[in-house]
């Protein structure tokens, strides 16, 4: 057979999208932060990988943490079991002495610690600061974040803020765990409750004399990722827009107030969840370092911001989540 002549063959390029959504042209690094809170995201700033520490025995936690600090970990999450349920996961530490064992020989000035507890977070915070103080650390230098669920928010304001002298500067961030999760409900319900709970938390703090730009930059969202990449990526993009919009009524002056940080709190065994965290533009995940190292160093995934932007299914889902969550938030607010 005579060879076919392909010399005239060329590709046919199209410069119009087949789908278009109105929110698509929002960018990164500027409100409403659809495509990420920083203009260059992971190109210049790594996703933080946090080490989860939740053995029941403080000494075991201490050893585990020391080993990992040695290999380069700088971020960890202490999860405490403060419930009466002995089956629940988490560190069991009820006294200042327990905490001193937990924090023995840990360079607290060099690492960031997130504290989380299933129930009584206030006692944990008090014991933590007291132990750190006795170990010779100035609490003002500690890089502490705290995870608050809805029940913990009011006691946090009433009890703890008084304890630390009405000052939020001790905290790197206060991350809010929505009371309704995607797993049990759906993304829209999760985000609507998140907005509602933050709205009420902020309103209370303002009534106690805080200013919006003191509060909002400290607040963050802690969520668990589900399995469906389209939903999870869209959810993270949507919630940044929703946050920016919700904050408008408080008239923030600082751009950082409108930029929502996202922390992902389940322990990530599967790479695909870390992958989705990067795709969605989250700030931290609980994971082993190696997963992100490979994604970051070998795959070029982090070399462009919000790589799925424009995708018909992602943008469609993002729009859907924005609209439905906002509507539900307004309904809940009226109640």
């Amino acid at each position: 057979m005579k060879r076919k002549d392909f010399s005239k063959l060329s590709i046919k390029t199209q410069t119009e999208k087949n789908s278009y959504f109105e929110h698509e042209d929002f960018i990164a690094g500027t409100a409403p932060f659809l495509r990420g809170i920083d203009t260059t995201m992971f190109i210049q700033k790594n996703l933080t990988t946090q080490l989860l520490i939740d053995f029941s025995i403080p000494k075991k936690c201490n050893n585990f943490l020391k080993e990992h600090i040695f290999t380069g970990y700088k971020n960890c999450v202490f999860h405490f079991n403060t419930s009466t349920n002995p089956e629940a996961l988490g560190i069991i530490a009820n006294t200042k002495e327990d905490f001193k064992i937990l924090l023995q020989e840990i360079p607290l000035n060099d690492i960031e610690i997130t504290l989380s507890a299933n129930e009584d977070i206030i006692s944990i915070l008090k014991l933590f600061f007291a132990a750190a103080h006795e170990l010779g650390f100035d609490e003002k230098n500690l890089k502490i974040s705290v995870v608050l669920n809805q029940k913990q928010q009011s006691t946090f304001i009433d009890d703890f803020l008084i304890y630390i002298d009405k000052n939020l500067s001790n905290f790197k961030s206060i991350t809010i765990l929505p009371s309704k999760t995607s797993k049990d409900y759906n993304p829209e319900t999760e985000l609507a409750y998140f907005l509602l709970e933050c709205f009420s938390f902020i309103t209370t703090l303002i009534s106690k004399g805080f200013k919006i730009d003191e509060i909002a930059p400290k607040l963050a969202l802690t969520i668990e990722l589900g399995k469906n990449p389209v939903v999870e990526i869209s959810k993270m993009r949507a919630v940044r827009i929703l946050w920016s919009k919700m904050l408008l009524q408080f008239q923030p002056k600082n751009i950082k107030s409108s930029a929502l940080k996202i922390h992902l709190n389940s322990n990530f065994s599967s790479h695909i969840k870390v992958l989705n965290a990067v795709f969605g533009g989250a700030q931290s995940v609980i994971s082993s370092k190696a997963v992100f190292q490979i994604i970051n160093e070998e795959t070029n995934i982090t070399r462009t911001v919000d790589p799925w932007a424009g995708s018909t299914s992602i943008e469609k889902k993002t729009e859907e989540i924005i609209l439905n969550s906002w509507e539900l938030f307004l309904q809940l607010q009226k109640k």
């Binding site: 087949n18 399995k227 790589p307 799925w308 932007a309 424009g310 995708s311 018909t312 299914s313 992602i314």
Partner: peptide, 23 residues
């Protein structure tokens, strides 16, 4: 096997359509 569960419910190629970067 977990990929079968995690991605199978989507029409996973749809996600690439009209993505600025991938296109």
């Amino acid at each position: 096997l977990s990929l079968k569960d995690e991605l199978a419910n989507n029409n996973s190629q749809d996600i690439t359509t009209d993505s600025y970067y991938i296109e």
